[in-house]
Design a protein around this nucleic acid. Structure first.
Lengths: 237, 237
DNA sequence: TCTACCCAAATCGTATGCAATCTTTTTTGC
DNA sequence: GCAAAAAAGATTGCATACGATTTGGGTAGA
């Protein structure tokens, strides 16, 4: 089974409209850092890029704005979000609150099929960790996020699932911005442990592991305010 | 049916985004049940009602769609959401997960000014409980929701605050749909207790009280699938 | 009388045009 | 030479127009 199908089945598939398809592509680009934070996304530019009118481009940008991935300023345009350290802290505080509960919910509903999907996901992660280079690292961040989204899908709460989609997307941006590089293999092993807890039905353990996992992800960030980002932020905005 | 009669048009001539103003008015109307679930909100009708073009009306409806207060179907239009019992359960499951944590966060940051605001809010609630009639009941539901939003604001996490805005709005709709009427005074007294816990700095107690409070709200709902709503749902969709 | 088909009305999806606003550059006064 | 004002350029905000899709009604045929 394809993970994307599971994740996006709730919000309906791509046949809905073009704005959603453009949003998805832009979101991928932002999360993958192919679009740097602060990059201006003008309606006209996005429109010509995807060969649609400004109307459709505008709708896509509005969606991303709701998700917190782009920031729009009146009469000025849309910019790729440049999350501040404070925003990053709030992001992970939110995840600490939500994800242990999601782990418990998922644990209570997980099926053999789900377990197989988790293992496929873990394999996918492992593949990127073995590789080197920035492309592999971006893929790795994305795969790591997909693990959390898969868990949210298994938990079976559409509302929380949507919240997690937003949190994971923004987290990926934050990790790309502030992450040191060392902890990836650690994160993967923690994912493996969580799946193990799910498989053995130990919900409490799954929840605790998830909490620690999030702590570890955040601990890997360097959220000190540095001259570089601050300067760039000042110039961009 | 004409929806003009059910929306009061308070011309908020703020220089702000008009779409946002329209969204706010529509949201109030939906949460207050002046717009019944299932009501069709055509772009043209909303536009003429608020004296804007379909473009702006469409943007407002899109925002409400993101919040889960309206459901849009391609080439058919937007309809006021008609949350199912299952959706209601997921809603309250989400709140059980998030709000105790919000209570703890708020407890750690609450100031004397905040406490005063809470007490003013409690007074407001009490005023509507004393009254009778459907109008007072709607105001009461709204005031009750505002309490939770105030708590979220005090907690100081913008992300969770936005989540709570959505959850409270949808909960208000659910309560209006499925709520029995008896528990209102009980909810108010529980709010009072929570403020008391905040004031005395007992964060654990505030969190536990909040959890029980949410349980009580949900317990007050009649989520059994009845013939009426099921039929209406079948007809609406 | 019932069913199937077709056409008209309504509504949405999208493109495009114009006015307002912001930014940048140029010009002008000192 | 520098600062301030003004004009030019770019981009968004919003309205409107037109094609596409759905819906409901009416008519013809069995």
């Amino acid at each position: 089974m394809n993970i994307a199908d599971q994740i996006y089945s709730a919000t309906d598939s791509a046949t809905q409209d073009r704005a959603r398809a453009i949003r998805d592509q832009l979101r991928d680009a932002i999360v993958d850092r192919r679009l740097a934070p602060g990059t201006k996304l003008s309606e006209g530019e996005v429109g010509t890029l995807f060969d649609v009118s400004r109307t459709v481009a505008r709708a896509a940008l509005q969606m991303l704005s709701f998700e917190g991935l782009v920031r729009t300023e009146r009469n000025r345009g849309a910019f790729v979000a440049n999350p501040s350290p404070e925003e990053a802290r709030q992001l992970f505080a939110s995840r600490r609150l939500i994800e242990p509960g999601i782990a418990i919910a998922a644990c209570g509903r997980v099926t053999a099929t789900d377990i197989a999907a988790f293992k496929a996901q873990l394999d996918e992660e492992g593949r990127f960790i073995a590789e080197r280079g920035p492309t592999a690292r971006r893929s790795e961040i994305k795969a790591s996020g997909d693990f959390h989204l898969l868990l949210a899908a298994v938990a079976g709460n559409a509302i929380l699932q949507r919240f997690m989609e937003e949190l994971v997307a923004r987290s990926s941006l934050v990790i790309a911005l502030y992450g040191r590089s060392g902890i990836s293999a650690c994160g993967h092993s923690e994912h493996t442990e969580i799946v193990g807890a799910l498989e053995s039905g130990d919900c409490g353990r799954a929840s605790r592991l998830m909490l620690h996992h999030i702590d570890h992800i955040e601990a890997d960030l360097d959220l000190r305010v540095r001259a570089g980002p601050a300067l760039r932020e000042a110039l961009n905005f």
